[in-house]
Design a protein around this nucleic acid. Sequence first.
DNA 1: TACTTATACTGGTATGACCAATGCATAATA
DNA 2: TATTATGCATTGGTCATACCAGTATAAGTA
Lengths: 248, 248
Amino acid sequence: MVEKRLYHSVANQILELIDSGVFPAGSRLPGERDLATKFGVSRVAVREAEIALQAQGRLEIKVGSGAYVLDGSNKALNGLPKVGPFELTEARALFEAESAALAAPIITDEAIKELEGYIEIMSGKVEADITADEADEAFHMTIARSTNNHAIIFVIDSMWKMRTEAAQLQNVYKSVCDKDSSHREDEHAAILDALKNRDPATARSAMRAHFNRMIEALLVASEEAAYEEVKRKASESRSRFTLTQQLH
Amino acid sequence: MVEKRLYHSVANQILELIDSGVFPAGSRLPGERDLATKFGVSRVAVREAEIALQAQGRLEIKVGSGAYVLDGSNKALNGLPKVGPFELTEARALFEAESAALAAPIITDEAIKELEGYIEIMSGKVEADITADEADEAFHMTIARSTNNHAIIFVIDSMWKMRTEAAQLQNVYKSVCDKDSSHREDEHAAILDALKNRDPATARSAMRAHFNRMIEALLVASEEAAYEEVKRKASESRSRFTLTQQLH
DNA sequence: TACTTATACTGGTATGACCAATGCATAATA
DNA sequence: TATTATGCATTGGTCATACCAGTATAAGTA
């Protein structure tokens, strides 16, 4: 990873030390002067790094005492929480369905046209300067923006920026998304259709179905995986989610 | 406002200049050296302030060129988006209702007890080291945590941290919350009751009703207000929200 | 033993210096 | 004249050093 600013690099090095257990939560970091010599940089760089980490909620800096490690086990590099693919998809199913329902009665014709464009890009029928995945995100964000509700827009945008915690989970997630691309078209078309009809209830259920099927695919993929951790999360997610499905 | 670190103060001064229109979006800030002498601080303090603002997405710093103001008209001091009370309550109605529905089947007895405690605190029947408002927030966050879904917990927590953009709107919001305190007890009791019965559908509708009533109160209060801006947002919010209500 | 005090830390801030990237005015060129 | 090359002033990035103000702990005192 290339860092433009030196303090980014220093911050990442500090995070590595924390995550590797050298400095567990609650412990005190070495002084800025020590870290500076240890990393071969000036004290300024260490200060800026620690300030950045403090802003991300990973450190608490006490004057005259030191910098203390906060429990950041549930936080990713970007400050957003670490979430597994199951709970992330579950949350999306719930929230994006409501987003679609809210958007349906008030979505503009321009937004509809935009959505049609993204679907074409995802199908690969037209040339575009964005990838299919980027078009996927744009599709969902355009619906969110159509709610005209900034809180909803922020929330859904945040969920797109969250990343899964573990590498193997992320790989499972990615492979599912790839295999999913065929279904994706139909499901997006169904969502768009409901929006065209300005039908909130259908838009909601179509969006739910979209994510529900993604969860099902995730469950299949995770059961094929060799990791117990993945299987445990799968069963957790399934027991909750199946119940919710029955309610709609 | 008391700032612990100097760069906080400097960052706020820079933000004031931006918000007051001295440096509009897209414009270039004076050099770090100029700002340092202007504010009567060292260049280090200015640098740290600009780094913090960059992390908040308010500035873009280009080496050799300068610091450029990004459009932050929709962002509050804490980095979260500025949202009006209507859209915020609307988003809460949607998302927290789903949160309650998801939590209902799996909420623990311990969490139920905790919720009962918060209700007692809000009613003023018991002494506590937290205020009624803090108990209110704790009530909702406990439900969110009961979903066991970190994405949902993060989202609902974020919405509690959002603040309304304009002072007059905030006052309207606050006064409504105060007048609402009597209803609040009953509504919270209804939510708790549904959770006790592990009934997702009822929990969802009870939570919706809770926020729906708050929106109604907001609309009444805003129509009494003298500001056209408030009235406009009220009508916007009502036209959307009434429709959504019919769907559940 | 209990309390005060001295001292060696810590982070916070300031200053001045130098480097590399940038951008613009100027000069050299086609 | 239009275009390109060049030089220099400005900007952010980094460093070394110094000093200040809290903090914590060991030494000293009652």
